[in-house]
């Protein structure tokens, strides 16, 4: 098992180098001098501009800048943002907020997907199943910002159950509404997948055998149907994590959550190479770790899967 984890982590290294290179190159290729945008309408004195360019190595060729950046990252230094803050500090401030949001959303997604998917699957073709299908189609077709505005308007402004924006103090209760919206954004596929695998498992031979042993529905459904249906759904949750981060960028903007999405968006607008690349690097790393975790959970759920020791 330890061997397997180490091997997976080693595999992550080329992926990380590849993604940072791509992102760095794309930010580099963006038109315009990023420093000029900082000054807005005013024209900075050439001496200052030159000093800043030297400080951020902007006068060097692309490959030097990239290698210098990579060298710093290896030593744990993600560089300094254009506003003079250490990128490490920004990461430490924003990532916990977004992670809290993401895991809250994943939990909500799981609860909805499993319960709705299970009932739909067991009563295939019934009224519940049909309505669930319609609602999931609706959720798939709505862009996430529309979902955000609808939730903000009805639940926060009209009903006043939640505060419409989150603000600086991103505590769990305040994050619930954006988390629900995020969960709804990805939940439809998970519902359909749960439903499909529940239907498939229900017709499995071992389910009939379980009934023939004298077991009741109350035991067969959770123990023999739901448990086996979890396996494909778990894999889907891993893939959803990536989607959630994307959704978080929009959701955080609308609900004013001081998280990764919000900050990254600002950094992209300003063309801040160190910040953008560092954020993406950490995201890729997180995504890889989450998927290794999913693979490990997978092995727990399905004993047939054993990773080479």
């Amino acid at each position: 098992m330890a061997y397997y984890i180490v091997r997976r982590l080693l595999q992550a290294i080329p992926v990380l180098i590849g993604t940072t290179f791509l992102i760095y190159f794309m930010v580099f290729a963006m038109p315009g001098n990023p420093l000029l945008t900082l000054f807005g309408d005013r024209t900075p004195p050439p001496a200052l501009l030159e000093r800043l360019e030297q400080q951020y190595l902007l006068d060097q060729p692309f490959i030097i800048q990239y290698l210098n950046y990579l060298g710093n990252v290896v030593t744990g230094n993600f560089g300094i943002s254009f506003s003079g803050q250490s990128v490490n500090d920004i990461l430490a401030r924003t990532f916990p907020v977004t992670l809290r949001l993401a895991f809250l959303a994943i939990t909500i997604e799981m609860v909805i997907a499993l319960s709705v998917g299970l009932i739909s699957g067991l009563r295939k073709g019934g009224i519940f199943d049909a309505s669930a299908l319609v609602v999931s189609l609706l959720l798939i077709s709505l862009p996430i910002f529309v979902l955000c505005f609808i939730a903000q308007f009805f639940f926060a402004v009209q009903l006043g159950w939640f505060s419409p924006t989150v603000g600086a103090d991103a505590s769990i209760p305040k994050l619930i509404l954006p988390a629900i919206v995020l969960a709804l954004f990805v939940v439809a596929t998970a519902i359909r997948l749960t439903r499909a695998s529940v239907i498939e498992t229900s017709t499995a031979d071992f389910v009939r055998t379980a009934y023939s042993k004298g077991l009741g529905r109350r035991r067969v459904v959770p123990v023999h149907i739901l448990r086996n249906s979890l396996i494909p759904v778990t894999t889907q949750l891993g893939a959803d994590f990536g989607l959630l981060i994307v959704g978080a960028t929009v959701t955080e903007g609308i609900f004013n959550v001081p998280g990764v999405g919000n900050t990254l968006y600002q950094a992209i607008i300003r063309g801040e190479r160190p910040t953008v690349v560092s954020f993406v690097t950490v995201m890729v790393l997180l995504y890889l770790i989450v998927n290794i975790l999913i693979d490990l959970i997978y092995a727990v759920l399905d004993p047939r899967i054993r990773y080479v020791k």
Binding site: D205, R208, T209, Y211, K213, G214, R227, N228, I231
Partner: peptide, 22 residues
């Protein structure tokens, strides 16, 4: 449920698919 398993036992056809793999 009372009869199945207790009064009537059942041995299925395919041993590969009739035990829950998990």
């Amino acid at each position: 449920e009372e009869v199945r398993g207790k009064r009537i036992g059942f041995v299925p056809q395919d041993p590969m698919s009739n035990l829950n793999p998990v």
